[in-house]
Simulated assay, not measured.
Amino acid sequence: MAAAPERTRDRMSRVALELFTAHSYEGTSIQMIATAMGVSKAAVSYHFRTKEELLAAVAEPAFNDLQRFFDEVGAEPGKAAQRRLALKGYVSVLVKHRGLLALLEQDPAAAASPFVREKMTHFAQRLVGLFIEDASNPKEQVYAAVALGGMRNAAAVFSMFSDAELNQYLLAAAERIFGRAAPRKSRASRSPSSGR
């Protein structure tokens, strides 16, 4: 069982996410968080010296889950069955942290936080490498980045769906996107003996 200070920090993080989402990161003060929790501003500042530290605590569970996801699936694209399992795991992470994703989608100040930006950049690059077989192909890199960004965006904006529904719809979309047939070679790249 979590110790009392840890439970308090967790509760502060949950309340902070709710207020950041309702009033924006910049529009939420430490005093607002303290008032919502029924504690003094000093009590919040005891656990989090700055609002930036509080935002990092709000985002950290999602990044920890992403790290666990990579620890489990590895960092290289696998065969179709492995890729499907990886998609399933990634979609689960997106759905679990949809509240944070909604905040980062609608609030540029929160998304621009150095902690958040550094982690997002790091994991975005790893995700692209995981879901494409030809990591040296710029066209495929861009395709994967757009697809993954779309999945993240969908997890953030479709609040009308339950977690189970969103998980189902996101996974179906992801399988269609990443299960597409390999792109055909253009006419110019075919060998002379293959055609006119």
Results as ranks from 00 to 15, higher is better:
residue 122 H to R: 10
residue 151 M to E: 09
residue 95 V to P: 07
residue 151 M to N: 02
residue 182 A to S: 15
residue 83 R to G: 08
residue 86 A to H: 05
residue 162 S to E: 06
residue 88 K to D: 14
residue 143 Y to K: 03
residue 171 L to D: 11
residue 77 P to W: 11
residue 131 F to A: 02
residue 105 E to C: 12
residue 150 G to S: 07
residue 129 G to R: 02
residue 88 K to Y: 14
residue 148 L to G: 01
residue 149 G to W: 07
residue 105 E to N: 14
residue 111 A to C: 03
residue 82 Q to G: 03
residue 185 K to F: 01
residue 82 Q to K: 09
residue 105 E to L: 10
residue 156 A to C: 12
residue 79 K to H: 13
residue 127 L to S: 02
residue 89 G to F: 02
residue 124 A to C: 08
residue 117 R to L: 10
residue 85 L to A: 14
residue 111 A to T: 09
residue 186 S to M: 01
residue 141 Q to L: 01
residue 106 Q to K: 15
residue 89 G to N: 10
residue 85 L to M: 13
residue 143 Y to S: 01
residue 107 D to I: 01
residue 119 K to E: 12
residue 106 Q to C: 11
residue 117 R to N: 04
residue 157 V to K: 09
residue 152 R to I: 00
residue 159 S to N: 06
residue 125 Q to E: 10
residue 146 V to Y: 02
residue 159 S to M: 00
residue 147 A to T: 01
residue 178 F to D: 03
residue 145 A to H: 06
residue 138 P to K: 07
residue 102 A to V: 02
residue 105 E to Y: 15
residue 73 V to A: 04
residue 171 L to Q: 10
residue 116 V to L: 04
residue 174 A to K: 05
residue 134 D to C: 12
residue 94 L to W: 00
residue 80 A to I: 02
residue 108 P to G: 08
residue 168 Q to A: 15
residue 141 Q to C: 04
residue 97 H to K: 06
residue 89 G to Q: 07
residue 140 E to S: 05
residue 107 D to V: 11
residue 153 N to S: 13
residue 113 S to C: 03
residue 124 A to G: 11
residue 120 M to S: 13
residue 136 S to Y: 10
residue 125 Q to N: 12
residue 161 F to T: 11
residue 74 G to Y: 05
residue 98 R to F: 11
residue 118 E to V: 06
residue 129 G to W: 01
residue 170 L to I: 09
residue 126 R to T: 00
residue 99 G to N: 13
residue 79 K to T: 13
residue 86 A to W: 07
residue 131 F to W: 04
residue 141 Q to I: 02
residue 102 A to M: 11
residue 167 N to W: 08
residue 105 E to Q: 15
residue 115 F to L: 12
residue 115 F to N: 08
residue 158 F to C: 10
residue 103 L to D: 08
residue 166 L to D: 09
residue 135 A to N: 09
residue 91 V to W: 06
residue 157 V to Y: 00
residue 81 A to R: 13
residue 163 D to M: 00
residue 75 A to G: 15
residue 114 P to C: 02
residue 83 R to W: 05
residue 137 N to E: 14
residue 175 E to S: 05
residue 186 S to L: 03
residue 129 G to H: 08
residue 117 R to W: 07
residue 184 R to M: 12
residue 92 S to V: 05
residue 122 H to C: 01
